[in-house]
Design a protein around this nucleic acid. Structure first.
Lengths: 267, 267
DNA sequence: AATTGTTTCAAACGTTTGTTGTAATTTTTG
DNA sequence: CAAAAATTACAACAAACGTTTGAAACAATT
């Protein structure tokens, strides 16, 4: 099933002459769809939103979605890229800053992690006027198994994710590859789950009779980054591989460490 | 709006005389539905599975689902509880063991965390014969926003989650409530994301030219638990609240300087 | 003013969905 | 073995679904 673009192609702003202006200056139609999609995706899940519900909520005609996009999947992709591009740009800038300044190892790692997770975590979805519903949507998509969603995720995160991982790897020479990537996996989970903002932790806190306010993230991101930094800098648990070795824990061919370099080598 | 049980009620095995035996000894019908549901939910997501797809896959009649359950939501609930009950029982037993044995703080915390996360993480969904598809399903549900799913999650995790949080809290007197629960939130994220088994981390490793095998979890759980334990035992980042205080960090003044801690310094 | 290209609208198409009623079948009970 | 209960099979329904079409409404250019 190769993706058919059908007539959505012509709205793909490929070589369009000029953008579509509106009569008044109040409602641009195409973005009305994306705004409604963002709200509905977060509320009902990507698969839980039908085109009819979407057009009803965004107050556009049923055919408009097919005209401007071409299908539900394209709506998702457009919405995702609309947010992920500036988000990743901010990540890059923050990572650049980390390259500039010098500090002790812990602070460096913490700042590095903070640079990566802050853009997505800055505005919690549970705030009173939900500032970034997209963060929650992203968290849902991050565990979605369907290939179309995975492709969207991959395309949005491969580049920035690799750069971040490389920079972080340089600060973790005490870890074998296997353990480093497991810890990186933990970092991803922490970030996405925090974005998801499910309220589970808050529920647990309530059951324990403790008040726990998650709505103000400004300083809390530092706490999370600190937690993760301590985890990364902790001594290796895995003792079956020498710290400098690149092989995984399973016994095997790697009789001698092939590279003692602290950071990951390119292919 | 109120959940209607309709005729599914009579199959609710409330005070059933005896289970329904089958002619031969090969296929029990009711479980065939649950088995297929498990496979399909994981593959297409909960919302992505229609009754007709479910009945087609499980090779039962279309009406059978309504007869034995009463709707899709009840299928999900039945499937969830079928797995979560023995899983949580194992968690309880492992936590009991932690109460018995004595060790240094780090080892205690790591064992505690390991006891909580191991049951769900033991069998990765990406193994060759997928041992526990349920783990992946659980991860998807953990970020699902719909109220019906949240109710299922809450009911399955409130009790064990509270017990675990209490036990872990006792080992973290150096943390204020606010910071403790943030770190607990990180733990949840790590657990669920690892369960989700999205392959993202593996993808990043590939892009960096490193082989990363996630399929053998037997020892790797200890690595994850070690990571998390180090995070929990790390000194508090938030210095605006005294370690023993229960107030959250909201108080405005930072006059005393949040940089007092030796390793944690603000930007 | 006429023309052109883009956007919006209303209506309809054919499918698929969840659900239900009823008959056929099997299993258990008396 | 017959009656009763439980389960399965089949057909049908209204509602909702994605998609398509053609005409009307619009902005800008000629």
């Amino acid at each position: 099933m190769p993706e058919t673009m059908k007539r959505g192609e012509k709205a793909g702003n490929s070589a369009g002459k000029k953008a579509a202006p509106r009569k008044g200056d109040i409602p641009p139609t195409k973005e009305r769809i994306l705004d409604a999609a963002e709200r509905l995706f977060v509320r009902y899940g990507y698969k839980g939103v039908s085109m009819r519900l979407l057009t009803r909520e965004s107050k556009v005609n049923l055919g408009a979605v097919h005209y401007h996009f071409g299908g539900m999947e394209s709506v998702l992709r457009a919405l995702f890229e609309k947010h992920i591009v500036p988000l990743n740009q901010e990540r890059h800038e923050l990572l650049d800053k980390c390259l500039a300044e010098e500090a002790d190892t812990y602070t460096s790692v913490r700042n590095l992690i903070e640079a990566y997770i802050r853009p997505s975590l800055r505005y919690p979805a549970s705030s009173k006027p939900p500032k970034s519903l997209f963060a929650r949507l992203q968290a849902q998509l991050s565990v979605d198994p369907s290939p179309e969603v995975r492709r969207v995720i991959d395309r949005g995160y491969d580049e920035i994710g690799t750069r971040f991982a490389r920079m972080l790897r340089a600060h973790c020479p005490h870890l074998a590859d296997h353990e480093f990537f497991w810890r990186l996996n933990c970092l991803y989970g922490t970030m996405f789950y925090t974005q998801a903002d499910t309220g589970r932790t808050q529920k647990i806190a309530e059951l324990m009779g403790v008040e726990f306010d998650q709505t103000d993230r400004a300083d809390d991101i530092t706490l999370i980054a600190g937690f993760l930094a301590s985890g990364f800098l902790a001594p290796a648990v895995d003792t079956s591989t020498s710290p400098a070795a690149t092989a995984k824990s399973q016994s095997g061919k790697s009789s001698s460490g092939k590279s003692s370099s602290g950071n990951a080598k390119g292919k």
